[in-house]
Write a protein that binds this DNA or RNA. Structure first.
Lengths: 213, 213
DNA sequence: GAAGATACGGAGGCAGCCTCCGCTTAACAA
DNA sequence: TTGTTAAGCGGAGGCTGCCTCCGTATCTTC
């Protein structure tokens, strides 16, 4: 909307450079020392003053956002691609598995997201919206095909996913999470009326809101 | 083992009193301000010096442990009771639901546990051991009865449970978690061979390690 | 080259962590 | 009771990290 107002000064070269340096330093420092690492350490590593860091990224979360936005986008794009897979349930499973790998690589991200969630920050809002949308279409497709229960929202799924990944620094977390996700996806499949027990009325028949067709 | 060594001085009355005061204050402060709340605030509220607080609880985790140990024990006892229920799967489901309620009440606990997990503290070790054991018997019973897949460890389950609850300060978390747990338990049931699709080889037939009979 | 906008850096105020040690007080013996 | 002494108390103080503010330096534009 203000893309081409009258005269726009070219951004200062040093500013651009510094921003980049800070980002790089932040990525390194956060990955090494967790998301609570000292911002002064980041500044020092970037070779800039603490004031400069704060000017570019007024809050810690702003810094997280800049560092991890791209990574969230990658995850989201992956879902986008899987949209075209044949078996939608399998696509979902594949996305979740990839997500786990992803988390395993970028250890910093989950912790940052967890922090972001608690503080209700931008990053959280952005990430959840982006990912929800991406996964939402997977879910919708699966539900529309009748291959999966339809009363589970993308947000639900994300919460569960990230929650499980949150334990990502315990010994066997990765295989554990994979196992749990498997169980979860199994539970997600629409089940034939195998159990004539009590839970009959528990699940509403209507597909809850945003069905595709 | 050193219950009656030669001469043991009776513990000082003021020390006992102060310990109690600090615990009470801590519970209040943590529940209100989260587990990162200032320890000096706790001391002030307890009406003791900061030094006293640190003498009784050298680390923040020690304080958490003392505050939340009892609560963990309650959860664990609940599982103990459910052991006698008829339907083991249902018992598990009930335990999980109670767990959610529990978390809803004692908001402090999950956050504290989450912190504890990351720092690999006592509290974490203790809690996980205690709860694992309690749930383990539920799982075993269910698996032995053939009502549930047997390749899921109590630790897995706990991780998943706490993970899901970790988002416990977002708007609709409670119903979301309940929904997810339902899905999860569904996935946990051993499924009849309803789907002759691809996933045939995915799950090994052998019940993985500790089967009951 | 000059002017003016923009960005830099770090001093400094504040808060919380944790330690240390001189003083107080409770428990026990006589 | 009173004296002795171990146990406990409290808060000053050193340290680290957060964040703001503003005098100074540097870049862009003309």
């Amino acid at each position: 909307m203000d893309d081409h107002t009258d005269q726009i000064r070219k951004p200062r070269a040093d500013a651009v450079r510094n921003r980049e340096r800070v980002l790089e330093a932040a990525k390194a420092v956060f990955n090494a020392g967790g998301p609570e690492a000292s911002l002064e350490a980041v500044a020092k590593r970037a070779g800039v003053g603490i004031g400069t860091l704060y000017r570019h990224f007024p809050t810690r979360e702003d810094l997280f956002e800049a560092v991890y936005r791209r990574e969230v986008e990658q995850l989201s794009e992956l879902a986008e691609q899987l949209k075209n897979a044949k078996d939608p349930v399998d696509a979902l499973r594949r996305w979740l598995r990839s997500g786990v790998e992803f988390v395993a690589t970028k250890k910093g991200m989950v912790a940052a997201l967890a922090l972001a969630v608690q503080s209700g920050s931008e990053l959280h809002a952005f990430s959840f919206e982006r990912l929800s949308k991406a996964i939402g279409s997977l879910l919708d497709r699966a539900a529309a095909a009748g291959a999966m229960r339809a009363d589970v929202s993308p947000e639900d799924l994300l919460r569960a996913f990230f929650g499980m990944c949150y334990m990502h620094d315990q010994p066997g977390w990765q295989s554990s999470v994979l196992r749990m996700l498997d169980v979860f996806v199994d539970g997600l499949r629409v089940q034939p009326v195998v159990k004539a027990k009590a839970r009959v009325a528990a699940r509403p028949a209507k597909p809850a809101a945003k069905r595709k067709r």
